[in-house]
Amino acid sequence: MFVLTVDQRKSRQRQDLVEAAMGALNGDALRPLVLPFDRTAGDEMQAVIAEPAVVVSIAMELAASSSWSVGIGIGPVKEPLPENTRAGAGEAFERARTAVTAAKAASGNIAVSGESPLAEQAEALLQLLVLVARKRSKMAEEAGILSDQGLTQQQIARQLGISQQAVSSRLQSGLWQESRRVLSVAESLLEGADR
């Protein structure tokens, strides 16, 4: 099982982002949560997730925004699960706490904690992917999101009002296809670390 513990960065200098983030993440039917995001303390929220692809998707989105430190804890949780996340307990919760603390100083503000050495390997890939995502231009990201939705480069070009060559250039400069392949490796590593 995976526990995500997420802490808002520079929360004393910014408005509280936790409520809006929880609303968006808990309402996303495409990314199912075992236990929804719940505010655990001040500017921190936590959720329990079963699927590695969902963990990676949410963790990348939050860390790439530069607004959050993201800790991924891997391990068992005490069952039966409580009604709300903040009442949860078990190794995955403890590891998520360790990971979010490490994430505050980590490259890309993301860290993973698990018993398996695969957790450390997944962390290295996720840190690299966050740094790539943060350097990506808005135009490259826009083209990449449409590509992820299954649109062809020709369809993306029509939608954005640019040439197909410009779409290709944006995807290449943003390392979009390469990042997607590495994301799938990170998901596999997390899945292996959870076994």
Rank of each mutant, 00 (worst) to 15 (best):
A133T: 06
D43L: 00
E91T: 14
E91L: 15
A20I: 09
N84I: 15
E79S: 07
L17V: 04
K104C: 11
L81F: 04
L4G: 06
Q177R: 13
S169R: 14
L33R: 10
L125H: 15
S188Y: 08
A102W: 00
G108I: 11
L126F: 10
G108W: 02
Q172W: 06
L190R: 02
L189V: 06
W176L: 05
R170P: 00
E91N: 07
G108C: 09
V54N: 04
R95G: 00
L175N: 12
V55G: 02
M22R: 08
R31Q: 08
L151Y: 13
W68F: 14
D7V: 05
Q8N: 06
G27W: 09
D38E: 07
K10Y: 11
F2Q: 00
M45A: 12
R136L: 02
T5P: 00
A96K: 06
Q149I: 03
I156Y: 05
V77E: 05
A29K: 10
D7Q: 07
A63E: 04
G23T: 13
S147V: 03
P32L: 11
A92S: 13
S163H: 10
L118Y: 12
M60T: 10
G114F: 00
M60H: 07
P36I: 06
S184E: 15
M45V: 06
G42E: 04
A64K: 04
V48Q: 15
I74R: 01
Q165G: 08
L25T: 15
A24V: 13
K135R: 14
M22W: 01
L171C: 11
F37D: 00
S113R: 15
I49T: 02
A59G: 11
G174L: 01
G150L: 09
P36K: 04
D43M: 02
L190N: 03
Q153Y: 07
T5N: 10
Q13M: 08
A53L: 10
Q8E: 13
P52Q: 12
